[in-house]
Amino acid sequence: MTILRSFQCPYVEVATENILAAASKLDISVDLVEIQSRDELMEKSPTPYGIFSVIYKGQLISFHRLTVHSVYKKLQTLLEEPV
């Protein structure tokens, strides 16, 4: 899983912590990518909402803050899908 984030919003840290907590429960490793510039955002972000994006198995699973429970449920569903 990859989290792309830029600290332009005070809720990015809480959003990241929720993703990390859910991923940890499911033993999913997470790469954090700190977006440092507009050019990097334009190159890497899968959405125009470039402050926060979560990608898993090639899918954008969130571009906003989710609770630990909702992230966990979403990830569980993706783990159960055939490859």
Rank of each mutant, 00 (worst) to 15 (best):
T67R: 09
E17G: 01
V83H: 02
K74S: 08
I55Y: 04
T77F: 07
V54P: 04
R65H: 13
S6I: 13
H64Y: 15
S37L: 11
S70W: 15
V12P: 00
K74H: 06
K57M: 07
I55C: 03
Y56C: 02
F63D: 10
L32V: 12
V68F: 04
V30K: 04
A23P: 03
A23K: 01
F7G: 10
K25G: 00
D39H: 09
K57H: 13
T16F: 04
L78G: 01
G50E: 08
H69P: 05
S24E: 10
L20P: 02
R5V: 12
R5T: 12
C9A: 06
I28L: 10
H64Q: 14
P82Y: 05
I55R: 03
S37I: 14
A23F: 00
T67L: 02
Q76V: 14
T47A: 03
I35Y: 14
I51R: 09
S53M: 10
S29H: 04
G58K: 03
K44M: 12
L79E: 07
E40V: 03
S6M: 15
R65E: 14
N18M: 06
L60Y: 06
K73R: 10
L60V: 14
L60R: 05
I3P: 01
P46C: 04
L26D: 02
I61M: 02
E40T: 05
M1F: 06
Y56S: 00
L66C: 10
Q59W: 12
M1Q: 06
V12E: 05
Y56K: 00
G58F: 14
A15M: 08
S29L: 02
M1E: 09
S70Y: 15
P10W: 15
K25Q: 07
K74P: 03
L4V: 13
P82E: 13
Y56D: 10
V71N: 07
S45R: 08
R65S: 14
E40G: 05
Y49C: 06
S6H: 14
Y72C: 01
N18T: 12
I61F: 00
K73T: 10
P48E: 06
V71Y: 08
H64N: 12
P48D: 07
I19M: 05
G58Q: 04
A22Y: 05
V14A: 11
D31H: 08
K73I: 13
Y11H: 15
K25N: 01
S45M: 12
S70G: 07
L41S: 09
R38G: 06
S29T: 05
I19T: 14
C9N: 11
L32K: 05
S62R: 03
G50Q: 10
K74V: 03
A22C: 08
H69C: 07
A15Y: 12
A21Q: 08
T77I: 14
S62N: 04
L26R: 00
L20G: 02
K74R: 07
L79H: 00
